[in-house]
């Protein structure tokens, strides 16, 4: 952005005296949304807990469509997407968003490329968290990563997300690409049976924990899966991290409010 407005990140709370206040640089689009979610086209239901369901966030959030982006291009790291991704991220920044997320973990193929082009926090893939999780675990524990498309969750994506090699080696990747209903998502059917998909995802987690009893946590890469995170935590009895936990970290840092309470 050539013309960069002075950011106002002040918290307007009880007793705030406003005085003279400036309006935005652009007449449309800037309505105080704290979070901006870059979205590829996906005709699928977005129940509560889906990353496109803005009712699931603690801060005001909007979804920005990335023209021409779809699952196929994103999963395969189609580099021709880069300019339009950066353009949409800059749009989110110009419209006042304080952090950027995405509606597909495979945006992670472009994490560093996009983060370098904007001045706001950019968290494009849940995979970023794998190294955060590893920091808190015992050295002998591993991490289970459940994703939508196993073969495309490549080392390149982990590298773009700044995950160190030694952490990458502690991650066991499980994909849902062969599950009967989940696999139809790539065809954008516009519908799915929630209970069936839940069982498909929980069964992957069950298998993964059975294969790797040393696992200390489960990480959901796919943004279609957070609705089932609590079910996975209940059944496998271990911490489950997903895209919402990561975006909650971003939201927590950019939307600070004063503390009130007892001393």
């Amino acid at each position: 952005m050539d013309k960069k407005a002075e950011r106002d990140w002040k918290y307007y709370g009880p007793g705030t005296r406003y005085g003279y206040v400036e309006g935005p640089d652009i007449p449309l689009g800037n309505n105080g949304h704290v979070g901006g979610i870059l979205a590829l086209y996906a005709w699928l239901p977005f129940p509560p807990g889906h990353i496109n369901n803005v009712g699931s966030y603690d801060v005001s959030t909007k979804v920005l469509a990335v023209p021409g982006a779809n699952q196929k291009r994103m999963h395969s790291s189609d580099q021709t997407l880069k300019p339009v991704l950066i353009e949409t991220a800059k749009k989110a920044e110009a419209e006042g968003c304080r952090f950027i997320g995405s509606n597909c973990g495979y945006f992670g193929h472009f994490q560093n490329d996009v983060a370098s082009e904007v001045n706001i926090l950019c968290y494009l893939s849940s995979v970023i968290q794998s190294s955060w999780i590893a920091q808190g675990l015992r050295d002998d524990q591993s991490i289970i990563v459940i994703c939508g498309d196993g073969p495309n969750l490549t080392k390149h994506l982990f590298d773009q997300c700044s995950v160190p090699d030694e952490v990458f080696r502690r991650c066991h990747v499980y994909g849902a690409q062969d599950k009967p209903v989940f696999s139809t998502f790539t065809e954008l059917p516009g519908h799915f049976d929630y209970q069936v998909v839940k069982e498909e995802i929980v069964s992957i987690a069950r298998q993964a924990v059975h294969d790797h009893p040393d696992a200390g946590a489960i990480l959901l890469e796919c943004t279609d899966m957070p609705p089932f995170a609590a079910d996975i935590a209940s059944e496998l009895n271990m911490p489950v991290f997903d895209a919402f936990s990561m975006l909650g970290f971003a939201a927590g840092a950019v939307a600070r409010k004063p503390y009130y309470g007892f001393k």
């Binding site: 002040k10 918290y11 509560p48 009712g55 911490p239 936990s245 840092a253």
Partner: peptide, 29 residues
């Protein structure tokens, strides 16, 4: 944050993040 208009990280932000992950709740809405 009101002075610098930048993200401000600290122990509370880190703790809230961990809370979100280890106390996973069902989503309703």
């Amino acid at each position: 944050q009101s002075v610098c208009a930048l993200p401000v990280f600290d122990t509370i932000v880190m703790a809230d993040y961990l809370y979100k992950a280890v106390c996973k709740k069902h989503y309703y809405g």
